[in-house]
Amino acid sequence: GLGAVESAYSTDDDPNTFEEITRYNNFYEFGTGKEDPARNAGALTTDPWAVQIDGLVDRPGSYDLGEILSGVTLEERIYRFRCVEAWSMVIPWVGFELSTLLNRVGVQPSAKYVAFETLVRPEEMPGQRRPILDWPYREGLRLDEAMHPLTILANGIYDEPLPNQNGAPLRLVVPWKYGFKSIKSIVRITLTEEQPLATWNMVNAREYGFYSNVNPQVSHPRWSQATERRIGGGLLSRRQETLMFNGYGEDVAGLYAGMDLKKLF
């Protein structure tokens, strides 16, 4: 195991099984079906792995994964995970707060946003051989969202290294936002002054906002966001109500004080 320590940020909800978490994924780099990532991600090489950290930082450069992980305390964070497609899971992530990495590289005062990019390697990522999305997959956070203690970089689940289909070796987890914000297999982190591009926002800005906070009151043209199905209940499971900010409102609502979340969805 990775030896992660417990965290007060974990939920008491029952976690989904390892099988559920690793066999029902959206990771279009490996295909658009939910079972495709588990089937196709095995060929991905995750060692060696480096993350390019650049933009408005004091110490830009290419950071080896080992270097990033040395000196951080890995915590188990059992978070609710809510997909924009109206299903959800509870996942025992292993990771560390993104803020510790950002503080280490030194965020410059002019930085307002953090941009992330996923690996592009069509030889090992068969979904990238077709233009389903404008590769690389991109996501972004406002700096205060990125620095929030709930925001983590994860390298494991169930105290084991992250399976490739879940975004190995290093992914973002932002539990109060729809799952697509939690970008996988990160190779680049850039601090910027302008709001960065985000892949699904580029595909359809009317449906996928930059913020994409879980919000049962903002209806999506494709899925009602009022309720969700917790994965694992079988054929007769019932939907449950979706919580504002996926139930993390107490911690994060302050980040959006005064904002019209119906407009800035």
Binding site: E19, E20, R23, Y24, K34, E35, W87, R229, I231, G232, G234, L235, S237
Partner: peptide, 15 residues
């Protein structure tokens, strides 16, 4: 298949 796990992790959607 849906009752026996053959339609994957989310059988309602699968069915």
């Amino acid at each position: 298949l849906g009752l026996t796990g053959g339609l994957g992790i989310e059988p309602i959607r699968g069915l």
